[in-house]
Simulated scan of single mutants.
Amino acid sequence: MQPESASYRGYQAYGYLEPGVDYADFKLADQLSRVPAYDGGLSAGQRERAGRILAEHIAISLHEHAVVLPADTGEIRAYNRTGRQRTAYAGLARSGLTAVFDNFMAGASCVTSEHGWKWDDMIYALGFRLADLAKQDFVVHATTVAGIRAAKREGRVALVAGLESSTMIENELDRLDILYGFGVRQIGIAYSQANQLGSGLAERSDAGLTHFGRRAVERMNRLGMAIDVSHSGDRTCLEVIEHSRVPVFITHAGARAVWPTNRMKPDEVIRACAERGGVIGLEAAPHTTLSEAHREHSLESVMDHFTYCVDLVGIDHVTFGPDTMFGDHVGVHKTYAGNYGHDRDPAPEHPRVPYVDGLENPAENFTNIVGWLVKHDYSDDEIAKVIGGNTLRVLENVW
Rank of each mutant, 00 (worst) to 15 (best):
K27F: 02
F26Y: 03
R245Q: 12
L299W: 05
S291E: 10
L159Y: 03
F326A: 03
D345I: 03
N397K: 15
L133S: 00
G127N: 13
K135R: 13
I53Y: 14
R295T: 08
G389K: 10
L163N: 03
H65S: 04
W117C: 03
W372A: 01
G15Y: 11
G338A: 04
G183E: 09
I58N: 05
A125C: 06
S192G: 00
E396G: 15
P362Q: 08
D267G: 07
L179E: 14
S301E: 08
Y79L: 11
W372E: 04
I315A: 12
R393H: 04
Y38L: 00
S205F: 11
A59K: 00
R49K: 15
L290R: 08
F182E: 11
A284T: 13
D380K: 00
G314I: 07
I60V: 15
R344A: 10
D22P: 01
G15F: 03
S5Y: 14
S298C: 11
A13E: 00
T144D: 04
K27S: 09
S113C: 14
A158H: 06
I280C: 08
L28T: 10
W372H: 05
M168N: 08
L299F: 05
D234F: 01
F182V: 01
G162N: 08
S166C: 11
G321V: 12
I383H: 05
G40C: 07
R263A: 04
G321W: 11
Q2R: 09
N103V: 15
T210S: 15
A194W: 03
A363K: 02
Y11D: 02
G96P: 09
R276G: 02
G338W: 02
G389L: 07
A134Y: 01
R263E: 03
A384M: 05
